[in-house]
């Protein structure tokens, strides 16, 4: 019971964090310059996106809950169980971020989801 409560916290915080992160990173754009000045400019641009900061907050909550879970549960339970966020996220990526998810990609996601469900048993 305690482990599933932690899984719920991890999944919820991960979904919100990832959606905010993906939406904000599309504004920052593609990383093209790999020299120190270019990287500096890139990270400065990241620090100005306020929902990206919020996303990091959600990711921190998710991470502390994950640390707690790993302190008593198996790695081979914890990791697949928290991967349940993947299916929710793909649906939300389609609905909220307007990404086009074609049939092939849906099929792949369905296989991954089914595999995750089997792993979590």
């Amino acid at each position: 019971m305690r482990e599933w409560l932690l899984v719920a916290v991890i999944v919820g915080a991960t979904v919100v964090g990832d959606l905010l992160q993906s939406a904000e990173m599309k504004h920052v754009g593609e990383l093209t310059e790999f020299h120190p000045t270019g990287l500096g400019r890139y990270f400065a641009a990241l620090a100005r996106r306020k929902y990206l900061i919020l996303a990091v907050g959600f990711m921190a909550v998710s991470f502390f809950a994950f640390m707690k879970l790993l302190s008593f549960a198996d790695l081979s339970f914890a990791v697949p169980a928290t991967a349940g966020s993947l299916v929710v996220e793909t649906i939300l990526a389609r609905v909220l971020l307007k990404e086009r998810v074609d049939r092939t990609r849906w099929a792949g996601v369905a296989l991954v989801a089914f595999g995750v469900a089997l792993l979590a048993q």
Binding site: Q21, S22, M25, A93, R94, L97, R105, V109
Partner: peptide, 8 residues
């Protein structure tokens, strides 16, 4: 994520 879809 800056250039690839979240669903990828």
């Amino acid at each position: 994520l800056g250039w690839a879809d979240l669903s990828y």
